[in-house]
């Protein structure tokens, strides 16, 4: 399984702080998004937002980054701390 977590505005839009998806046929960050959208049609609109950022195991990555079972994949909007 792949652990997926959401933060801030995205967490509220999806109404969910996180979930797990099967790692079968999911090899990249882009495919994680695709699998999430297939599981829940209401999420597709929010997950296709181009400004969303992604971290895999706490490292910032792009949509082509490889993922595997056991990874933690986080999606979130641009950061606004400080």
């Amino acid at each position: 399984m792949i652990k997926v977590i959401f933060f801030a505005a995205l967490r509220e839009e999806l109404g969910c702080g996180g979930t797990e998806i099967s790692a079968t046929n999911v090899n990249t960050v882009a495919e994680v998004k695709l699998a999430l959208g297939q599981q829940n049609n209401d999420w597709q609109h929010y997950l296709t937002n181009n400004s969303l950022l992604c971290a895999v195991n706490h490292q910032m990555v792009n949509r082509d980054f490889s993922v595997k079972a056991g990874d933690e994949v986080a999606f979130f909007p641009p950061v606004t701390g400080g």
């Binding site: 933060f7 910032m60 950061v79 701390g81």
Partner: peptide
């Protein structure tokens, strides 16, 4: 910190 640290 403003553009990299994951705070919202």
């Amino acid at each position: 910190l403003k553009v990299k640290a994951p705070f919202w």
